[in-house]
């Protein structure tokens, strides 16, 4: 049987992720992992999925998005409400099933908002597009701060800017959700990473993926070839939104209290940093950067107060180093020794 090159690459990727998962599981069960790091496992999964999905927008589709945390928050809160409702109305008690269903709910809602936001956003170009995604992220956070949800039996009550609603409060405006059932688990997070890889890699290697990349590289040329640029950009944007919503669902169900202030502009930027440091358009780079940078503040515990300062300095130095022509050519020579220099790099939102 002869496999396509992209299929082999995909299989290798899944294999590496599975091995990494088995190693982590072994470390957890043998007690070799510190408590604080163990608590980081689900957030790491969440940020990996966030980074891969943002990479789809920034790297593959070439549009700078500064509001990715907005989709994450929609996913988180719809999943929290969905989980509570599913438990009350349908009597689902199996936690894995509940988690998967609420992740689907989170992804679906984020996807709907992805379509609604994508329609105006994708009409714009460049920095204007970036600022509008930022604006949408802030609007989502502000509106979530005014929303109140409660559950009375199996009936869901919603109110806007009015905290007095009957039943047990699920989402309490600016205070966010309290007493959330912590049903998120690391294995489910791992499955979500596999699912994300599956979706994104298959999308990139498909006809649609090539159309998306063609629109990124030269919009006018792609249009002249008969590619419906808006449609394909929308496809990338909404896929990323759905994945971010599912990641948000996992994140929301991992903590007992979740407030909208957790999904600030800073969170969007954090994910963008993962994408850029990992290499724009490079999925593996996103995974590694997301893992390292989520663990890094943990490892820098020894520096205590200087932790974020060191983080900032590392960030600046890495950007300066990777963009230094001398260091860059050095790297190129090291990596592509003998091989013809690989000119094809992932394009960027330029």
């Amino acid at each position: 049987m002869k496999l396509k090159k992209s299929t082999i690459n995909n299989l290798i990727s899944y294999g590496v992720v599975i091995v990494a998962f088995i190693v982590c599981q072994a470390m957890i069960s043998s007690g070799a992992m510190s408590r604080s790091l163990k608590g980081q496992m689900v957030p790491i999964c969440v940020y990996i999925v966030m980074a891969i999905s943002l990479n789809l927008v920034v790297g593959i589709s070439g549009e700078l998005s500064l509001g990715h945390a907005g989709f994450m928050s929609i996913g988180a809160f719809s999943a929290i409400i969905g989980a509570a409702w599913l438990r009350a109305a349908l009597g689902i008690e199996n936690e894995i099933l509940l988690l998967v269903l609420s992740m689907i709910v989170g992804g679906a809602f984020a996807g709907i908002f992805g379509v609604l936001i994508g329609i105006p956003v994708l009409r714009l170009r460049g920095d204007y597009l970036a600022i509008v995604t930022l604006a949408f992220g802030e609007i989502i956070r502000n509106v979530l701060n005014c929303l109140y949800f409660s559950l009375e039996g199996s009936r869901l009550h919603v109110s806007f800017n009015n905290p007095s609603i009957p039943g047990t409060i699920l989402l309490n405006g600016p205070n966010g959700a309290k007493d959330v059932a912590k049903i998120a688990t690391f294995p489910v997070g791992f499955v979500l990473i596999l699912f994300t890889l599956f979706v994104v890699m298959n999308l990139v290697n498909s006809r649609s993926g090539r159309a998306i990349m063609a629109s990124r590289d030269n919009r006018i040329a792609a249009e002249a070839m008969g590619i419906n640029v808006t449609k394909y950009k929308m496809m990338a944007f909404v896929t990323a939104a759905v994945l971010a919503g599912m990641a948000g669902a996992l994140y929301g169900l991992n903590f007992s209290t979740v407030a909208a202030s957790k999904f600030k502009f800073d969170t969007s930027i954090l994910v963008l940093v993962f994408v850029v440091l990992g290499g724009i358009g490079n999925i593996w780079g996103s995974i590694i950067a997301a893992t390292l940078l989520t663990v890094l503040p943990e490892l820098l515990r020894a520096f205590a107060d200087y932790r974020m300062l060191v983080y900032a300095i590392v960030l600046i130095l890495v950007m300066l180093a990777t963009n230094n022509p001398f260091i860059r050519s050095l790297f190129d020579r090291l990596i592509h020794r003998g091989r013809s220099a690989q000119t094809q790099r992932g394009g960027a939102a330029e």
């Binding site: 850029v276 440091l277 600046i316």
Partner: peptide, 10 residues
């Protein structure tokens, strides 16, 4: 542009 943006964030 993105490299500069991330540096500015740094």
């Amino acid at each position: 542009k993105l490299a500069v943006l991330i540096t500015a964030i740094g």
